[in-house]
Design a protein around this nucleic acid. Sequence first.
DNA 1: GTAAGTTGAACGAACGTTCGATAATTTTTA
DNA 2: TAAAAATTATCGAACGTTCGTTCAACTTAC
Lengths: 190, 190
Amino acid sequence: MENKTENKMELIYQTTIALLNEIGLSDISMSKIAKRASISSSSIYFYFESKEDLLIKLYFNLKDQMHQEMFRGITADMSVRDGFEKILRNYSNYIVNNKANFLLMEQFLDSPFIRKSCKDQNGGVFKPIYALFERGIKEGLFKDLETNLLVTYSCLPFVQMGKEYINGEYEFSSANIDIMIQMSWNAIKA
Amino acid sequence: MENKTENKMELIYQTTIALLNEIGLSDISMSKIAKRASISSSSIYFYFESKEDLLIKLYFNLKDQMHQEMFRGITADMSVRDGFEKILRNYSNYIVNNKANFLLMEQFLDSPFIRKSCKDQNGGVFKPIYALFERGIKEGLFKDLETNLLVTYSCLPFVQMGKEYINGEYEFSSANIDIMIQMSWNAIKA
DNA sequence: GTAAGTTGAACGAACGTTCGATAATTTTTA
DNA sequence: TAAAAATTATCGAACGTTCGTTCAACTTAC
């Protein structure tokens, strides 16, 4: 049944995520994934065409899931300020609740693997929020600069502080998140 | 002669950098490095103990070189504002003039490889500039917040825009660098 | 009983590394 | 200064291991 299939695929995904965060893209192998998941390595080929297929599908799954969390509760009629704030809070929650997935996404993003294997046409991870920022520019709320520059100044600090949080060098407390949201807004406000 | 040795090591380093940016940590191998450098793979072992040794030494070389470029012309008696500005300009120049090295550093930083193989006690890549920011806090120029937060908000945008620049999605013109320096300052000023 | 799922064994290829045989270079000796 | 000795550098071949993947045989579930 599809439930069984999805469970097995999920087991393979989760095992791969854990292993990738431990030993990295450079040392992962099908046999290591299989051993950790307590299955035969040939079983993986029942669900995935190849190692590359598994890793690429895993990446896009992570990306989709991240976007879903990021836009949870966002509606088209929201003000730019409310959308801005909610997205950054959602993203903070995503980091705190999905540490392994977050770290793995970052590992993928800076490796030539994804760039090579699939063009990832949709662009960077934050592409879906560009529309909101362009609205902010039009409404005169943000500086009239390139969108990617505004997105970088307001979102990338969350990525970096997420890594430091996972390293135990920062606290993602709600007070700290409030401070960051304010700093991000100040960095790009007109 | 030591010159000969250094030349050969440099050849191996440069070949490895180029190859890592093309195929990544996951697909690099001693034989591929050797073939690209037109030497025997066993020759690499005359200069390096192992593949791990080569990659780690390469990483620390890149890091040292980056720090040297970053602090070029920085003196202890400089004002915080001047030091802040010069470091960010130096870093921008480093990105533009050392694209491959910059990208490779980022690839290393997000892979478990470096974290695993060496503890990298000295901390993050931007650790050396923490002192300047702490001076800025003491002088009341910057917000009284954790240093790593201030460094992130002012420096990390340069990292991200460096990647977008190399992807052809941004221009590191002197006008744009001026804008970014101003945004970085505004993000953290008291 | 048929279809879905799993397995261990096996494949050739590539991996990191070692080693003894040379080649190239420098140092010592006469 | 030329030959000999010592050293430094390079190489191809080979080692055992692991890699990604295939496949025929088997088990499980409906």
